[in-house]
Amino acid sequence: MFKPIIKIHDATAVSTERVSRRHILWGVLYWAGWGIILGILCVVGGAVVRLLYPRVIYEASKVFKAGRPEDYKMGSVNLVPGRSVWIVREKEGFYALLAKCTHLGCQPIWYEDQQVFKCPCHGSRFYKDGINFSGPAPRPLERLHISLSNEGRLVVNKGKVVGHDYTLQT
């Protein structure tokens, strides 16, 4: 609708030059107008997208200290309060599992008598080592990096996912 009408001129006609120059000018302005609109949209759109990513997130630190190794019984599964992490002690050593179902993020529950994790949301089940064996969960529970601090306490790093055979010997 806003496209400039470009007349096709007879090549033999006189004084076409002035008219066509004017048309070229209008054409340039027309496309420049679209360019400006597009540019502004890109800048504002980019700003909005960037604005949605906060620079600082006020969340609990991903690295936290848990108890001393001797606090955990052999073969026990311990939920660290408020951290959504299980610390498991086996003969092979310690490992930490993220208490977040790989299906849709609910927190599974540990059943000591059956030795399984069950997710209440959609019934996914995991063995003690975090491997999924039933229900809709597509992957095993994530195993987190665990290490020993200088003063002899366990340190879990939720930001660092490790392989499913990773354990910490003590």
Binding site: L52, P54, I57, Y58, E59
Partner: peptide, 11 residues
């Protein structure tokens, strides 16, 4: 983007 963080919270 949806949560404004990695878990559901104030943002």
């Amino acid at each position: 983007i949806l949560l404004g963080g990695t878990t559901i919270g104030q943002p």
